[in-house]
Write a protein that binds this DNA or RNA. Structure first.
Lengths: 251, 251
DNA sequence: TCGTTCGCATTGACTGGACAATGCGTCGTG
DNA sequence: CACGACGCATTGTCCAGTCAATGCGAACGA
């Protein structure tokens, strides 16, 4: 059965017989080795592909996938440096040293999708400004990040210009009188839409994290919704938490 | 081609022609409708299954998958009640009212896997206690959560007993003199291993979040590593963040 | 009326083929 | 030596069929 072939190959990948980047036997070789039809071999290989373990490089053969995750730290927006030694070590361990970053920023005025509008407390028809950003690393797309702002508060501000804002869009918002003091993060885990798979060049078997961050001012007004799509094989999402002495425990 | 069939069905799911829980046309119906071989239809349906959009309920047919995510809030361990009104609203929106929870706890002494041992600063061969917990909701497995503790600090404590600790394992740790003041969270997004897929009854096309939380005492000693496996179709992971007035912005 | 058995529609697994698409290397040519 | 054309190995797509597994409902029997 195809499960035997699949499990045998998976075992070889797990125990290192087939190391990262190595080529698997060809379909023809497996067909001969196990004496089955080609469809059976293809089903076995297909499942490994969907598990994200191997990648077909047509027409060169199947290869064991490599994984080099980079740290994605939502808290970095407002706290550049980690405050604990553990996080420091963790970030440097997964650093992008030697890889060449690139990004493209694009600004538009849109009527946001229903879920975005709801988080920004916008009525149907109200407009928002969106800064769309795509990031590359070594020429490969890494993640996309769209930040939405209510149009009436950022109109004519620096945020509408598609250049990199070195001091940060959040700082510009603060200068406009909308300093964020709180944020709510949501993380959804799912398979990518076909559109996302195209833009991020995702192979099958690569899930994504869909990260939505809503930032609030001191008077509880939402002024920013940042939506990120993070391919699972290229990211580790990380948070650091700290609390004061009298803690109320709960399992 | 199979892509046309796949895209047509996906469109019908997206625009509501096929609503959540509805049955898709059978393979035979699609074969006739598009005048193609059955393998072609199966490939189209297979891709939709791998995207997590439809579920095959053999032998009744294919059905549109339903998604009812529940909030997973890592911060709840140390802060039972959300501190912002937004989080309050968000949690109640995705509440589990009317669904029946159940859990099973199991305690063991193990030599932890290398990645766990590293986070706990254990030498190879040193032992750890692990509290393994599986949670169900309405009789369906929901998530698994394994908490590791260095054996030498929890030996003979309440943590070694496989009962529910109402005041929380963290509180017990604190009573033993190991109060946690900091934690580092890591989130990996990937497809489940075959073992995870079995234990959590995951269909194909369901990715998981792999959540690792390491808790530290005031003198930076790691005393607890909690590993959770969260099926993507049943969870939203959520954090709330707050910061003090002088913020250092960074885009 | 209730319980059991059986048929049937449907998907799962598989065969053994065919032709198309594609990247790479080789060979030949200018 | 450089460049282009070609062949080839390999995967992608597809066909037409067979047999097995399975859950549901209908028919049947007590």
């Amino acid at each position: 059965m195809y499960q035997q072939i699949r499990d045998a190959l998976r075992q070889q990948i797990a125990d290192g017989t087939l190391s990262a980047g190595a080529q698997l036997p060809t379909e023809a070789a497996l067909t001969a080795q196990y004496d089955v039809g080609r469809a059976t071999v293809r089903q076995a290989l297909g499942e490994l592909v969907n598990e994200g373990l191997v990648v077909p490089m047509r027409p060169r053969g199947y290869f064991v996938k490599e994984r080099r995750p980079m740290v994605f730290r939502p808290q970095a927006e407002f706290r550049k440096r980690p405050y604990s030694a553990e996080m420091d070590a963790f970030v440097t361990e997964h650093s992008a040293d030697g890889r060449e970053p690139r990004q493209l920023i694009e600004v538009a005025i849109v009527e946001p999708a229903a879920d975005i509008a709801k988080r920004l407390h916008l009525e149907p028809g109200e407009l928002a400004a969106v800064r769309r950003r795509i990031r590359w690393l070594d020429g490969e797309p890494f993640n996309v990040n769209d930040s939405y702002f209510p149009l009436d508060i950022v109109r004519d501000s620096e945020i509408m210009r598609p250049e990199d804002i070195t001091r940060g869009a959040n700082e510009v918002l603060a200068e406009l009188g909308y300093r964020q003091v709180r944020a709510l993060d949501e993380l959804y885990v799912r398979m990518p839409t076909p559109d996302e798979a195209n833009r991020l060049e995702l192979g099958p078997g690569t899930p994504v994290a869909y990260h939505v961050c809503t930032g609030y001012t001191a008077d509880a007004r939402p002024v920013r919704v940042a939506v990120s799509v993070l391919p699972g094989d290229r990211h580790v999402i990380s948070y650091e938490r700290q609390w004061e002495q009298p803690q109320d425990g709960a399992e």
